[in-house]
């Protein structure tokens, strides 16, 4: 439970912070390739990235998630991340239980790579993120991606997998919002303690916030 996190030795925190920091760079590189993203005002690009980064990291981590043992396995077993590894980085089951449920549900959609990529792009270009100024421009870019996704599913994804697939994918975006909220809550708690925030990277502190400075 969230009240019983043992903060005294978060042995996985430095490693997970590095992994998340690396992933944030990947998310930025990905966002820059989305048509129209670079044409947004710099402030809007920053607002979109800061609010969606953790959601896109959760989405992209589905590629390494395996239903066999409910771990994130990257290549060999040397890079296998268990739920317990994430708790040793300071997160509680209040985040991890719904996160694993999300990973299982997403995995079972058996998305094509094209659909997976479009879902990440749609997630980044959400006009309702805090701090976004030109919401109508972001909305038009997101609408275009949604139409491409729906067309792709209709033309390239055979039934029965395609049945209600678009609606199920949009539901995943809603799930990500609450995962994001819980992550923020737990991150805030962690970063409030200097002995832990000092183990985070400058990029993580900038994107997720630095309570200390």
């Amino acid at each position: 439970s969230s009240v019983n996190i043992d903060f005294s030795h978060l042995s996985m925190l430095p490693h997970l912070a590095d992994l998340v920091s690396y992933s944030i760079q990947k998310v930025i590189g990905f966002a820059k390739m989305i048509p129209g993203f670079r044409n947004l005002a710099a402030e809007d690009q920053i607002a979109l990235l800061k609010s969606s980064a953790i959601e896109v990291i959760m989405l992209r981590s589905n590629q390494s998630f395996t239903l066999e043992d409910m771990t994130w396995t990257c290549g060999s077993n040397d890079f296998k991340y268990r739920i317990s590894d994430v708790t040793q980085a300071g997160h509680s089951m209040d985040l991890l239980e719904p996160l694993v449920k999300f990973q299982v549900g997403l995995k079972k959609l058996n998305l094509h790579e094209e659909e997976h990529v479009l879902l990440m792009a749609i997630c980044i270009l959400s006009p309702d993120r805090p701090g976004v100024q030109d919401t109508s421009l972001v909305e038009s870019l997101q609408d275009r991606l949604s139409e491409i996704l729906q067309t792709y599913i209709r033309c390239r994804h055979p039934p029965p997998g395609s049945r209600l697939l678009y609606a199920k994918m949009i539901q995943k975006l809603a799930d990500l919002r609450s995962l994001n909220e819980e992550h923020s809550k737990q991150y805030r708690c962690l970063s409030f303690q200097p002995e832990h925030s000092m183990q985070l990277t400058p990029l993580v502190l900038e994107v997720f916030g630095n309570e200390i400075s």
């Binding site: 760079q25 930025i28 820059k32 710099a42 400058p202 990029l203 900038e206 994107v207 400075s213």
Partner: peptide, 18 residues
């Protein structure tokens, strides 16, 4: 609300090979 400059994000957004 404290002022955020987001210097790293700006740098990574401008950098060509990211």
């Amino acid at each position: 609300k404290k002022k955020e400059n987001n210097a790293l994000l700006r740098y990574l957004l401008d950098k060509d090979d990211v």
